[in-house]
Amino acid sequence: MSEHLANSSAGISFIVNGEKRTVAAHGMKRLLDVLREDLHLTGTKEGCGEGECGSCSVRMNGELVNSCLVPVLQAEGATIETVEGLGRAEALHPIQKAFLECGGAQCGICTPGMLMATAQLLAVNPHPTIGEIREGLAGNLCRCTGFKRIFDSVAAVVVEMDATAKTGGAHAG
């Protein structure tokens, strides 16, 4: 079994927000806990631990996953994006900017996951209909907003990104 990628604390490596990271973590440890405890990326939240709320959503190899349901061994070699990789205070990502302006974040606890779900949605479908926005975000529960201003935020990002594309400006998507 020596060729197997095992359990051990030998070291699991993946790329997080563009940076290669190696952690000595147990294989069954949740990706969520590794991000939060080992890498101190506490932007990713735990709301339920059972795949229901989406506050732990991150992107893994270009797909949206709930990090509470990913054993970290299965993230070996993966490319992971979390809210911390989205934008910076001086240069908010258009999605962050839109949520700020449109009232898409209230208490903010669902927000990191909501932002990642939005990033995923727009990566796959840059011009979603309202129905597609609803479906794309249905796994991310928000108890504060009633979702309306979240939908408005997503719609605003689309407009903003289109405008940027037209004027030739670029932003890391």
């Binding site: 060729e3 197997h4 095992a6 147990h26």
Partner: peptide, 22 residues
């Protein structure tokens, strides 16, 4: 999180044969 990762063993043989042999 009520489970304890350390109480379990997880391996990834990486191939179908690897898994089936196991």
């Amino acid at each position: 999180m009520r489970g304890n990762a350390e109480a379990h063993e997880l391996i990834a043989p990486g191939s179908l044969t690897g898994v089936l042999e196991l």
